[in-house]
Design a protein around this nucleic acid. Sequence first.
DNA 1: TAGGCCATCTGGTCCT
DNA 2: AGGACCAGATGGCCTA
Length: 197
Amino acid sequence: MKSKGKASKTSREPWADQDHEPETSEASEPGSSEQEGSESSLRIRGSWRGVLRGGDCERGGGRGGPTHGTRRRRRTHSSGKERNVRRLESNERERQRMHKLNNAFQALREAIPHVSLDKKLSKIETLTLAENYIKSLTTIILGMSSTCLPAGETPSQASAARLLHRYQQHLEEDGEESLSQFLSQIHGFSQGSGKPS
DNA sequence: TAGGCCATCTGGTCCT
DNA sequence: AGGACCAGATGGCCTA
């Protein structure tokens, strides 16, 4: 199950198509990652996109920004070899970043209850289940706290928003450990002692 | 075999 | 200037 394609990707010559820098593969290997797949990723790989997409400089990539099509990529006049090294380092960082992201996904998987324990949840399933789980918990919490609400007010979206706001306040003011305080406060709801504001 | 899912590479943009 | 973030592209593995 875990033998996904990573380790067997075909090696390619990513830079050979652009500025024709033959000595691609001898660029210094960026820090030896021990993550899965690192072995293969140490080899030079790439895609043919450089060829296929050519000078595609105006994709509105980057954060949220609508287009910014007028901006041009910084041109650092470094040698091809230098660029290769920087690319490899960049790839390694990106790999590490994705590994961290996947670790977070894994933590999320373990945090949410799901039916089939033997089947690994996909990312989209994980996010969807997490969303539903949070909503369910919120509903339960609001139900528990409804006795503390002002007369006539029912657990509603507004209440949920207040709950969220309260939680965010805790995070901003007290940092991580506030979560346990917040949870104990919520627990207080069930005892009828806590009072959301 | 097609489609889903994933890891990785890549280059553009944003942020520090 | 360099790292982080992002999204598109690509190709491998797995399952129905």
